[in-house]
Design a protein around this nucleic acid. Structure first.
Length: 369
DNA sequence: GACCCGTGGCC
DNA sequence: TGGCCAAGGGT
């Protein structure tokens, strides 16, 4: 890791901010510095690219123009606003945060990073981003862009996958950032990180700060940032049961914790829960599903295969392989079943995860309005 | 500190 | 295809 002297720091600040003034992106959440706007955009942008976020952000502001609107929203509407973005706990935490603001802060945002970080769903990065952009606090906002940009500029070789590495970057960036335009500085780093200083195909030759980029000058830019690899997604097998009740579908709302919390799917049974023998036949599996429905839900049904091709869906650390069955319910008492019958028109109002869209697509059902 | 939590894009 | 990446936070 290298250290810059005061003259280099000043030179870098001026170069970066001049570039940002000319080439910074015009984004919907940059029209003002309203903390609500900054906050919503920052949460949406976690692990999500700008082009994906833009339409979600516009619709979110249409549906929930203020913190009070968000605090009062029904959860179904909330999750629908987030449908397709992923990491659904983000939006449930946002509503908790909105309610905290109204109940405990008289609706006034804390203006420091430490104060903001007390709120649900706001961690060190988002606290720094809101504090610097909305409240002009000279604090770093260390995200993936900052890791990538500063690891290359300064040749910082600490493993960015390790939590303690954040402190190294926070200290390095704090020395470099200006006190007069901290929000613009942090946003300029993000724009740099998503344009000239991308992970795989950086275009440093045209970067406004290439003369400060020590890794590039040394010819080993792609060695930064140093990051240990993540484990492969673990395979998990399911059986999905597509059961009609008249023209309705039998669907369940997933538990409020864990994967796809509170979203709606058809019944998904972990194959492991069917307790099949190693030499079980296809017929054995169908019988096991019928027995499972009777045991767990007190429901009688008959099942048959829908499609020999399983639906596959890969999450960050699970790869689901889902065999599809159609079911005909013999009984319709849903007292022991954690769900209900859902009409086709109601389907468009419920929050549905992507994997369920894939399952419905095999049955010829489109969820587009 | 390790693990959990979605989706889309790219090669 | 599989692996990696993209404005992280909670437990």
């Amino acid at each position: 890791m290298i250290e810059w002297n005061a003259a280099t720091i000043k030179d870098f600040q001026t170069t970066l901010l001049n570039w940002y003034d000319q080439e910074g992106r015009d984004l919907p959440w940059r029209r003002d510095h309203d903390p609500y706007h900054v906050w919503v955009s920052e949460i949406m942008l976690q692990q999500t690219q700008v082009q994906t976020v833009i339409p979600y952000y516009e619709r979110f502001m249409d549906w929930f123009p203020t913190v009070a609107d968000l605090a009062a929203a029904p959860e179904e509407r909330l999750l629908k606003a987030w449908e397709g973005l992923g990491y659904y706990s983000r939006v449930r935490n946002m509503q908790r945060c909105a309610r905290q603001l109204l109940a405990d802060y008289d609706g006034q945002w804390p203006e420091t990073a430490a104060g903001l970080a007390e709120l649900t769903g706001i961690g060190p990065y988002t606290a720094g981003a809101i504090a610097s952009i909305a409240f002009n606090q000279p604090v770093p906002a260390v995200d993936g862009n900052a890791y990538r940009v500063f690891s290359r500029l300064l040749k910082i070789d600490a493993d960015v996958a390790k939590p303690q590495t954040r402190k190294i970057f926070e200290r390095a960036i704090a020395r470099i950032m200006p006190t007069d335009r901290p929000g613009d500085f942090n946003q300029a780093i993000m724009d740099l990180g998503s344009s000239y200083m991308t992970a795989r195909q950086p275009d440093t030759a045209h970067s406004p700060v290439k003369r400060f980029n020590q890794a590039y000058l040394d010819g080993d830019e792609l060695a930064y940032p140093v990051k240990t690899k993540k484990p492969r997604p673990k395979p998990v097998a399911y059986v999905a049961v597509l059961a009609r009740m008249g023209t309705d579908w039998l669907m369940t709302q997933r538990p409020s914790n864990g994967m796809l919390a509170n979203l709606w799917t058809v019944p998904l049974i972990p194959v492991a829960d069917l307790e099949l023998a190693d030499d079980a036949t296809a017929a054995d599996q169908l019988a096991a599903v019928t027995a499972y429905f009777k045991r767990e839900y007190r429901l009688k049904l008959t099942v048959q295969p829908l499609d020999v091709r399983p639906v596959t869906h890969t999450f960050t650390h699970q790869k689901w392989t889902i065999q599809l069955l159609t079911g005909q319910l013999v009984t319709s008492d849903l007292a022991y079943f954690a769900g209900r019958r859902i009409s086709e028109s109601e389907l468009t109002r419920l929050p549905i995860p992507k994997v369920q869209e894939k399952i419905f697509a095999r049955a010829g059902v489109s969820l587009k309005d």
